[in-house]
Design a protein around this nucleic acid. Structure first.
Lengths: 338, 338
DNA sequence: CAACTCGTGGCAACGGGTTGCCACTCCCCC
DNA sequence: GGGGGAGTGGCAACCCGTTGCCACGAGTTG
């Protein structure tokens, strides 16, 4: 008998219990918490007191049901295992919990089908959605956005608010950097064609190259992973570039490993620049020069603005937030070989 | 006017709408979905038909309120930015969505206070909790576990079900490996003292060292990060070991970088072994030899068992699931210098 | 033919808060 | 003394499914 400390999972305390114990109506208890000022200060204090003693905790489901505010937002990302998202998730969490929101993480596992399905599943439970690097079509995204406030991340969908990095400026800085090192030609290793960032980066590269009078070339697309980067090396070998801009850090790292395996030295023979500045960029040898994205800030910005939309402070279709990038110079870039 | 395509955020369709359209009672609609077989097959078919036409979607909050099954579980982890969790999260997601559950990711940000607070916040909304590498005390964990089904991960709390890796065997393999390479002494770089895994690993190391007649030593504790690992190098310099076992891969990587900076070659001068086999372990140079944990499987196992508890198929206090580890040999270990 | 069982659908209460509206008390002011 | 208003608290409806219980008709059984 003494063993069974379960105490019979007693039902949680409700406002009715509190009301009875405090000698007021349930509605008054409700207001004491939800509408401070609406009830007499003394009464409210007493109610809080009693509530604390009883261990009252509002039932979020009940709250959500009557107010239709679930205090939850969804964060949909294309692949949880991609380190790109680590800091971003943290930023989102930070901003969300500051507003007392909970984030519901959904993982598309690289598949637009999974993405749509999970979205469908979580949609009714959340007040808004942040969709990172979606694999879905613009029109599917608009369908979603019609149902709940939505912000897209790392993508630009006409009519939907978005948070993106300043790819043009970032690419520009990378190109300038390579130009200063004497490179005359830059090869871009492309990522997924469905990726908006990919298009933006290649376009920016072409423009910057044009202006600064550097020749540009494009290979790929490759999967946005280490393996993808490694696989492209072979295509580079017959006409070895002196400088490569890779779709993202993972591709850049894969590329560096592939080059090393082929006996080509980075940065002496080839300079490599990535995008994102994930943690691994600092850990590899040589350290990867990369166009850093403000990962955490992206998460924070997305959630804050989503909240603004939810609260009606921002119109749904407004604004693209462009966050600054910055070139982090490490050891993967050097003077062009001659 | 034409601009405003909002169509006045029409309230979602409820069972009442469906009931009216199908000419039945709301309860029948409810049963058509929740209790197939309880209503006539023809009626049910018609209801489904109508529901589909109207685009009916059950309101999860209302469902949760009356059944007190929210179809959500919480996954609490000590630090989202730690790559250790990436695959684990994916595994948890996988297992959860298979059972039509949604996972609510909570991040303790390395703080037991944040951990407790987030736990409090999500507790009422979920049916169960997986707590990874908790920073909280055993007793706090038991308090939580008393309120909702709980599984701890990477930790062993008396009376609570847990999922852990087979540290003794993993350490044993690592020690054997080092022994074969001629090392006679192994230094352990300790992680957080609050970490159960840390204790388990050090203990296992001592035992294995004793059996295999290798001398063991312990330095630290250090924060379980790259910076932490890097910082410990200085303490190692006066009495440079030939072999180091680090608390986890991040520490091992930091250590390797620190050693390299001090002009010490890994693996020629010092062999290094980590734990977990995070992605970066493969990317660094030299590649890190490590005791691999079945990251994804851990996530899956934890969630599956949590579900078993929720469904009453498993008693709360039962069982510790011990998952196998395996030694991944890369380039950070070599014959002992003489 | 009475008594019973099944199959099926409806009624109404319930879960736990929220909120519009009304009632009552006090106070103030003319 | 009467009208007006501010401050408080309660009543009851509502959010949207779920489910215990009952009713009704059809089919079965003795």
């Amino acid at each position: 008998m003494a063993d069974d400390g379960d105490e019979a999972a007693k039902r949680p305390v409700t406002i009715y219990d509190v009301a009875r114990a405090a000698g007021v109506a349930p509605s008054t208890v409700s207001r004491a918490f939800a509408r401070p000022g609406r009830v007499n200060a003394d009464t409210a204090a007493r109610i809080r007191q009693v509530a604390a003693e009883l261990g009252y905790r509002a039932n979020p489901m009940a709250q959500a049901l009557s107010t239709s505010r679930t205090k939850m937002i969804a964060l949909m990302i294309s692949d949880v295992t991609n380190p790109f998202y680590s800091e971003l998730i943290r930023g989102a969490q930070l901003a969300a919990s500051e507003a007392e929101y909970t984030v519901l993480l959904a993982d598309a596992r690289e598949s637009d089908v999974v993405e749509r399905l999970s979205l469908e599943r979580v949609l009714p439970a959340v007040e808004g959605i942040v969709i990172g690097s979606s694999r879905m079509s613009d029109s599917s995204l608009r369908v979603i956005a019609k149902q709940k406030p939505t912000i897209v991340l790392n993508r630009d969908v006409a009519g939907l608010p978005s948070v993106v990095t300043d790819n043009p400026r970032g690419v520009r800085r990378a190109v300038e950097h390579l130009g200063e090192l004497g490179h005359q030609q830059i090869t871009y290793v492309a990522g997924p064609e469905a990726s908006w960032a990919d298009g933006a980066r290649w376009r920016a590269l072409r423009e910057a190259g044009h202006e600064l009078e550097l020749h540009t070339r494009r290979v790929g697309p490759v999967p946005p992973t280490v393996v993808g980067g490694r696989g492209v090396v072979e295509k580079l070998l017959d006409n070895l570039p002196t400088a490569v801009l890779a779709y993202n850090d993972l591709v850049a790292i894969g590329l560096m490993r592939g080059l090393a395996a082929a006996g080509i030295d980075v940065p002496r023979d080839v300079s490599v620049i990535g995008f994102d500045n994930i943690m691994a960029a600092e850990l590899v040898t040589p350290g990867l020069t990369t166009v850093a994205a403000p990962l955490r800030t992206m998460g924070v910005t997305a959630v804050k603005n989503l909240q603004a939309i939810i609260n009606g402070a921002l119109h749904r279709s407004e604004a693209a937030f462009v966050l600054p990038t910055r070139l982090v110079q490490r050891e993967s870039t050097a003077r062009a070989r001659r």
